[in-house]
Amino acid sequence: MNADQNNCAQNCLDAAEANAMTFPEIVAKLIEAGFESYAIDFRRSTAIYYLPSGESIELGFPADDVPVEASFDDDALRAAILEAQTLAPGYTYKGFRLKAKRAGCAGYLVSFLGHRAVYFGRTGDTHVERFPQ
């Protein structure tokens, strides 16, 4: 992994936190830099960005006081995802993160190759969100 890729990953994470780039913009930047996926772990407040070679970079983001709920509420998670997709008034990534955690989402994997995001709960429940065509 080169310095430009490290910087790209950090810039994308920072932009998400600052609401400076949308999800599609972040995905485009990461693909352009050569990444094939990334994973967000809400319990550890970390993001891991993966290259096809198997190399990865792990970065931290600000922790908050909201725990990941034990039960997975797919409807509440879908509502949070829809707010993000439509950039609903007042949407922030931090707000999304808090709503997702309250819905029992422990994290998610975004696969550029698979054109999807897979959200998962503490019990292994999942929700798959395919990228729009």
Score class of each variant (00 low, 15 high):
A3N: 13
D4H: 11
N7S: 14
N11G: 15
C12L: 02
A15D: 11
A15Y: 10
A16L: 13
E17V: 12
N19E: 08
N19W: 10
M21K: 13
T22Q: 08
F23L: 05
I26M: 13
I26V: 14
A28R: 15
K29N: 11
L30K: 02
L30F: 10
G34N: 02
F35M: 00
E36A: 02
S37F: 00
Y38M: 03
A39L: 03
R44Q: 14
R44S: 13
S45M: 04
A47F: 09
Y49I: 02
L51Q: 10
G54V: 07
E55M: 04
S56H: 10
S56N: 10
L59W: 08
L59G: 06
A63H: 09
D64S: 09
V66C: 09
P67A: 08
A70V: 14
S71F: 15
D74H: 08
D75S: 11
L77A: 15
A80V: 09
I81F: 12
E83W: 06
E83Q: 14
A84I: 00
T86I: 03
T86M: 06
L87M: 13
L87R: 13
A88D: 11
Y91T: 04
Y93G: 01
K94F: 06
K94I: 11
G95H: 08
F96S: 03
R97K: 13
R97C: 09
R97V: 11
L98I: 11
G104F: 07
A106R: 06
A106C: 01
L109P: 00
V110T: 13
V110S: 09
S111D: 06
F112E: 03
F112R: 00
H115K: 14
R116E: 15
R116G: 02
A117W: 01
F120N: 09
R122T: 13
T123C: 09
T123D: 15
G124D: 04
D125H: 09
T126V: 15
F131I: 01
F131P: 03
F131A: 08
